[in-house]
């Protein structure tokens, strides 16, 4: 059973401290929600965990599979079984969804076994087709260029598609609900729910409570000003929905004090 353990993580962007001592453990099989107002460092945490070069860790550790992964490059972290669904997926013109997907799968297979010859094409096609059906994606989508001219909803579906194909042990969903209408949100959530199980740990980062109506978290954490100020079970999200974030402000002062 692997787990992602974040210990006292401090991160700066352009020398400005954003994360100020984050502690969090996400285990395989658990679904955690990380909530909080905009600008409190939720996406910074997501990028830092995946290894974006612009995020400077000034203190702390992130343990996964027996090592501190902060020294690893993003591809090495992916090979260990970490995945980030981006809030703003990047377009790669000229590279089809299918070709990209196959290259990604093969890079991970090769990392696990240098002698691997890559996924057989019929097997790949079958998997891709199945998952695209779950996500209600037109099969023609596979030959479109990755995120190039995609609508917001299409981009998010492709993120979940990638997650389903790559089968990570720990997946971070960074504001996957933003920009989705209710139907798209439902479809994307169903896709995520299909991946739920003892093999996958999920960290859902969100500003709004509504995605949690579809993806029921085991634990909820609230982040404010670069720290997790409150943790609880699913009902914490409902409390937030009713009272907003203001009642937590005093809590922040206590922690910061």
């Amino acid at each position: 059973m692997s787990e992602l353990a974040i210990n006292d993580l401090h991160v700066s962007v352009n020398h400005k401290p954003i994360l100020k001592g984050v502690n969090l453990v996400v285990k395989q099989g658990e679904v955690h929600a990380l909530m909080g107002p905009n600008g409190t460092g939720k996406s910074t945490l997501a990028y830092t965990l995946m290894g974006h070069p612009n995020y400077e860790v000034t203190k702390g550790e992130v343990w996964f599979k027996g090592q501190n992964i902060l020294t690893l490059s993003p591809d090495q972290r992916a090979h260990l079984g970490l995945f980030l669904a981006f809030q703003y997926p990047v377009a790669i013109p000229g590279v089809s969804v299918a070709n990209f997907m196959r290259a990604a799968i093969n890079s991970q297979r090769k990392a696990a076994n240098p002698a691997d010859k890559g996924i057989p094409i019929p097997e790949f096609r079958k998997q891709l087709k199945q998952i695209m059906e779950v996500l209600k994606m037109d099969p023609a989508f596979a030959s479109r260029y990755l995120n190039d001219g995609f609508s917001g909803g299409e981009k998010k579906r492709v993120e979940v598609l990638q997650m389903a194909m790559l089968k990570p042990e720990i997946a971070i969903l960074d504001e996957t609900d933003s920009g989705l209408d209710i139907d798209a949100l439902r479809i994307v959530s169903e896709g995520v729910n299909k991946l739920r199980g003892p093999e996958t740990g999920i960290l859902v980062i969100t500003h709004y409570q509504r995605i949690l109506n579809y993806i029921k978290p085991d634990y909820v954490h609230i982040m404010m000003e670069g720290q997790i100020v409150e943790s609880g079970e699913a009902d914490l999200a409902i409390q937030l929905e009713e009272h907003g974030y203001d009642w937590l402000k005093t809590k922040t002062d206590i922690v910061m004090g």
Partner: peptide, 18 residues
């Protein structure tokens, strides 16, 4: 772009491959 490379690398491609 750095963002393109990061995106592709986060899926397991190394920098050359990305």
């Amino acid at each position: 772009g750095e963002e393109q490379l990061f995106y592709l690398m986060s899926r397991g491609l190394n920098e050359d491959e990305a």
